[in-house]
């Protein structure tokens, strides 16, 4: 692996520590909600890391910290070796030249009062490109790059005139107009129709190749992650429980949660009915603080040790680790051994 473009170390994000004015008056302390708990990750130049998890897993917050829309409670963030954890003002603005974001909901991504062209030009304007001719040229080039042609016509349209797929293309154009090195894409296709998704995903891959971009691709959908990424990190309740090369994660995951996620992807399989593995309950934020492994209340393999001891990070191969007491067993035999199957 070449040198990391972005390196996040032990990121933590707590919410709701301060409480309201009245709470302070009454001396009431709210328990902090730890949305992100000790997350470390590295993204190399030109690669895509997929961050996969269910709602509430902290994947979006992690993405927002990396774009520095949020400032982490603790931990550090290095971009090309420089510390960007606590930047503000002009320095933060300069960082944003290199790191951009694509958001989930294309319908809400644009100020309804502004034309698409104005919205795409906004980053340029904010980054001090004052010549309107240059701005226009770069906006047109960006719209052209995302296949919104003729770009001069699209740039004068209002967001309400465009479809979801077209809007998401504009989002990509806006994110790329500054020619960043890293793009955080937060579920960019989850709100689009199936027939539109493939075209957006293909476009993102094409642009990555052309511009040498790195992506942090946030998704709940393993099939999409598999298609987009070279590595996958799985988050559960604020922390990364397993990370590894994409193919290994799909075929030979070493954490029961990853195994369950893979098993739960509904898919047509010729001639067979897939057997379902029964899981217990649903992710509850309180599971993160009960002690032991935070997945044990739902884990089909949970043993006494899981309830008592926080699992160590088990390195299975270069670039593949799992936070599970039984990582090796799971990696070699999956979940099949212990769990009775349910039709």
């Amino acid at each position: 692996m070449n040198r990391g473009l972005l390196e996040a170390r032990n990121l933590r994000m707590d919410y709701g520590v301060s409480g309201g004015f009245m709470d302070q008056l009454l001396g009431a302390k709210r328990a902090p909600l730890r949305a992100v708990d000790d997350v470390s990750l590295t993204i190399a130049q030109g690669e895509t890391l997929a961050l996969v998890g269910e709602s509430g897993s902290g994947k979006t917050t992690t993405g927002r910290i990396i774009t520095r829309l949020e400032r982490p409670t603790s931990g550090s963030l290095l971009f090309e070796g420089r510390d960007v954890t606590a930047l503000s003002g002009a320095a933060l603005r300069a960082y944003r030249r290199h790191c951009q974001m694509i958001f989930q909901n294309p319908y809400e991504s644009f100020d309804p009062r502004l034309t698409v062209g104005t919205s795409v030009a906004e980053p340029l304007r904010l980054q001090g490109i004052d010549s309107s001719a240059e701005r226009r040229e770069r906006v047109m080039a960006a719209l052209d790059a995302v296949d919104l042609r003729p770009s001069s016509i699209f740039s004068n349209r209002f967001p309400t005139d465009l479809s979801g797929g077209q809007l998401q293309r504009v989002s990509i154009a806006r994110a790329l107009v500054l020619e960043p090195k890293l793009v955080v894409a937060d579920e960019p296709v989850s709100m689009l129709d199936v027939s539109i998704r493939a075209s957006i995903m293909t476009l993102m891959l094409k642009l990555q190749e052309r511009m040498g971009l790195s992506y942090l691709y946030i998704t709940h959908d393993l099939a999409v992650a598999r298609h987009m990424s070279s590595r996958i990190a799985v988050m559960y309740l604020g922390t990364i429980v397993e990370e590894g090369p994409t193919d290994v994660m799909i075929a030979g995951a070493a954490h029961p949660y990853t195994r369950l996620l893979v098993a739960a992807v509904p898919e047509y399989r010729a001639g067979t009915r897939r057997s379902r593995i029964k899981t217990r309950g649903e992710a509850a934020a309180s599971d993160a603080v009960i002690g032991g492994c935070r997945f044990h209340p739902r884990c089909p393999l949970a043993a006494d040790i899981c309830r008592e001891v926080i699992p160590p990070r088990v390195n299975l191969a270069a670039g593949h680790f799992s936070d599970c007491h039984f990582a090796e067993t799971v990696a070699s035999r999956g979940l099949a051994v212990r769990e009775p199957r349910v039709a």
């Binding site: 909901n105 319908y107 809400e108 100020d111 309804p112 009062r113 979801g164």
Partner: peptide
């Protein structure tokens, strides 16, 4: 799906 701005 139409999303509007200052929808109250």
């Amino acid at each position: 799906m139409t999303h509007s701005s200052g929808a109250d």
